[in-house]
Write a protein that binds this DNA or RNA. Structure first.
Length: 762
DNA sequence: AAAAAAG
């Protein structure tokens, strides 16, 4: 049913566009449909004997503001054509004014959408008087910006904005993207099917939004050269990037120096021994369908792979890939001993026990292909098209296990390719489970993927959908904040893979509109987060709706025993994987802590974000996020916010504004802490220090992706130093604490403004 | 505190 809402583009990309244009589409539909439908009706009425019809009729179509009956801004023709306003009673007048207000809002919104900065945040007083405040702000801006003109970096940001506001150009090319955020119809047009994935346009489009996160995730695993990074807008480039990435692989090993040699030193342990040791080990026979599946679907190399290439960790410290003396959190988690005194000091940042895991190192997967792991050729081709020619360690480890039907727990640090690690084999398994069967109308989903935020669910879908499409499977997003009609419609037609957030998923289950009884695979992304208070219960309830013995996959960059509640109830003999050599020393992120005076905080923040690259600022509360974004905006630094107080359209749009580079500064709550991928964020500023080390890790993981350098700056006051020190210990991050004052060179340096260079150019 | 459902 949403199909007819889709813009009908001949372009293959059309299957991707609707999401951008979902809101826009319906908006335009209303208008276009309204006008078309309105004309005859109006004509009829005019002909019906009104004397004014003759002169007025010619003008109807052209008169600005004429509307069809169906339009909410509709006014009877008589009123406008000739009836004096005096005839309107107060109520009618009110209605008319309201209608005008709506229309104006809609039109100004449409006009200003691409660059307007106000829209993106929650209601602010100045918007009640948009024109005057707009004018004021517009007038102000050149002055402010002018003051900054000496700094060329502002020109780029300021100029288009002034142009846009002044020129009132309705839409730029970015309009579609701006309005992205509605849902799209998952179902490809018939003409998009099949060949669609092979077409360049499709690829381009997917890459822009879907491929990129994945590729970057993958690259994030290893330090690729800078050259491989920029060329991500096109499919061919991606392929190049992937080739490059493959060549790069050895470098990663060099870099994570320990990995190979460690592997060699580490005593090999038999598979059985390893299993016996695992805390979650259970009798595998509990899984009714375990055996047959295993034999059937295990890839030819899978068994050997697991036995030969994936090295088990034997204990907390033995064979541990840490290069420093501390126990490494990167092996699932620190033992309690790693932070003994901290454990109960702060109830909100508990260090959970580590999980025993098999560790897979990059060198071990060298030369292995996705095909070797057991994925079908269509999927492999799609992956290659997305820039993933060869599997990364976490993928190489988990894919065979997933294909074998095992429950899997996997930890790979931020940006290590987790989405493909569960997504690709999930698609393969769903495909196998339907082999030979016809895809029935109204079939219920075979797999579900849950994510903690809507943005993440969208992002996951962008990655998985092309893979699913390549084998003729359908995905749909089920998340809140948007009307459910379209989602329900998709479900009615039949969907194979559901990707969503817990709230709406459970809602639709309870409404009887989503049936998970045939759901054989359930994935929890950011699984540890999903096990936190407030999330677990719905997640548990949802999982209970899945088929008996359904396969469970739990992934996170900070996976630890926090997931025990779910593991105990839902997982059977899970395979547990992690990636060797993933510690902070191998990270490309530079961490710093600025100890500041509270009164300087606002100005220091403005100074920090007053820079060239993309900056992500984390605030603890929604209100503060809004406040900061406005503060930056007022200082002439275009900024938007992202938090749960915004409606979904604004959330999606604001995130896209950062992605597209329309703004360089995004101020977000922790809604953006996990999973969200935006290219090129080179500075993460924590306006408020996080309370939990995991939050720190996830927030900082928004930068330093794709092997690029990234910086994380945390602002704290003196009183917070101790807590911060402890948190960093738990996170196993080393960061210098530096006292900073406003206008310190230190801040210039962190922002990337080197005073001397500016002096030289001046 | 934030996140996750809402016609």
């Amino acid at each position: 049913m949403p199909k007819n809402k889709k813009p009908r583009g001949g372009r293959p990309a059309a299957n991707f566009e609707p999401r951008y244009g979902a809101n826009k589409t319906s908006f335009h539909d209303r208008h276009a449909g309204g006008r078309d439908a309105g004309r005859p009706e109006r004509g009829a009425r005019a002909d019906a004997g009104d004397r004014r019809s003759a002169p007025a009729a010619g003008g109807y179509d052209r008169r600005p503001g004429s509307r069809s009956v169906g339009h909410r801004g509709y006014r009877p023709a008589e009123a406008e054509a000739g009836a004096p306003k005096q005839r309107w009673n107060a109520q009618e007048r009110a209605g008319r004014d309201e209608a005008r207000g709506i229309r104006n809002r809609a039109e100004s919104g449409r006009r200003e959408t691409p660059h307007h900065r106000g829209d993106e945040r929650t209601e602010r007083p100045r918007f009640s008087d948009r024109s005057s405040t707009g004018a004021r702000r517009f007038d102000d801006r050149p002055t402010r910006a002018g003051g900054r003109d000496e700094r060329p970096r502002f020109d780029r940001d300021d100029r288009p904005r002034r142009d846009d506001r002044g020129g009132q150009r309705p839409t730029g090319p970015g309009t579609y993207r701006d309005e992205r955020g509605g849902q799209r119809d998952e179902r490809p047009r018939r003409d998009d099917r099949g060949a669609g994935t092979q077409r360049q346009g499709f690829r381009d489009n997917d890459h822009r939004d879907g491929g990129r996160p994945v590729r970057d995730d993958r690259r994030g695993q290893r330090p690729t050269g800078p050259g491989s990074y920029r060329d991500e807008r096109g499919g061919r480039d991606d392929r190049g990037g992937q080739r490059f990435g493959r060549d790069e692989r050895p470098r990663r090993d060099d870099r994570g120096s320990g990995a190979p040699s460690r592997g060699a030193e580490r005593p090999e342990r038999s598979y059985d021994a390893d299993r016996a040791r695992r805390a979650f080990d259970r009798d595998r026979t509990q899984r009714s369908f375990e055996g047959g599946r295993d034999e059937r679907s295990r890839p030819s190399t899978g068994g050997a792979y697991r036995a030969d290439r994936v090295r088990p960790l034997t204990s907390d410290t033995r064979g541990r890939p840490s290069r420093n003396e501390r126990p490494s959190r990167n092996d699932w988690n620190a033992t309690p001993a790693a932070a003994p005194s901290k454990k109960f000091e702060q109830g909100d940042d508990v260090v959970h026990e580590r999980l025993e895991a098999k560790s897979v190192a990059a060198v071990e997967v060298d030369g292995v292909t996705f095909g070797d792991l057991g994925l079908g050729s269509n999927i492999v081709d799609t992956l290659v098209g997305m820039g993933a020619a060869t599997p990364f360690p976490i993928q190489a480890a988990s894919i065979p296990a997933v294909l074998a039907g095992r429950d899997v727990l996997a930890r790979g640090r931020t940006g290590s390719g987790k989405t493909i690690a569960f997504g690709a084999p999930l698609v393969e398994r769903v495909l196998q489970s339907q082999a030979g069967k016809r895809r029935e109308f109204g079939r219920s989903p075979r797999a579900i993927i849950l994510a903690p935020t809507r943005e993440l669910a969208l992002q996951i879908d962008r990655t998985i959908q092309p893979i699913a499409r390549s084998v003729g499977l359908f995905t749909t997003q089920i998340y809140g904040g948007v009307p459910q009609g379209r989602q329900v419609g998709a479900l009615k037609k039949g969907v194979d893979i559901v990707i969503g957030t817990p709230g709406r998923v459970e809602d639709l289950i309870n409404q009887g509109k989503l049936d998970l009884s045939d759901c054989r695979i359930a994935v929890l992304d950011e699984a540890d987060h999903m096990c936190e208070l407030g999330f677990v219960e719905p997640v548990q309830r949802i999982l209970r709706h899945t088929a008996d013995g359904s396969q469970k996959l739990l992934f996170s960059a900070t996976l630890d025993r926090e997931v025990a509640a779910l593991v105990d109830e839902f997982l059977v003999d899970p395979a547990v994987y992690e990636v060797a050599g993933e510690d902070q020393d191998s990270s490309t992120i530079e961490h710093r802590v600025l100890v500041i005076e509270h009164r300087d905080k606002a100005d220091i923040l403005t100074s920090l974000v007053d820079r060239d690259g993309k900056t992500l600022v984390f605030a603890r509360t929604r209100a503060y996020a809004d406040m900061l974004a406005e503060q930056f905006d007022d200082a002439g630094i275009p900024a938007v916010s992202l938090h749960g107080d915004l409606n979904q359209a604004k959330r999606t749009r604001n995130l896209e504004r950062l992605t597209s580079g329309r703004v360089n500064v995004l101020v977000a709550t922790d809604v953006a802490a996990r999973g969200i991928h935006v290219d090129d964020i080179d500075l993460v500023v924590q306006a408020d220090a996080p309370d939990e080390y995991k939050t720190y890790l996830h927030r900082s993981g928004r930068t330093g992706r794709a092997g690029r350098s990234g910086r994380v700056v945390t602002l704290i006051t003196r009183q917070r130093q101790r807590r911060m020190t402890e948190l960093l210990e738990r996170a196993e991050i080393e960061a210098p604490f530096e006292n900073a004052r406003l206008n310190d060179d230190l801040i210039e340096e962190i922002a990337g403004r080197v005073p001397t260079a500016a002096d030289l150019t001046a």
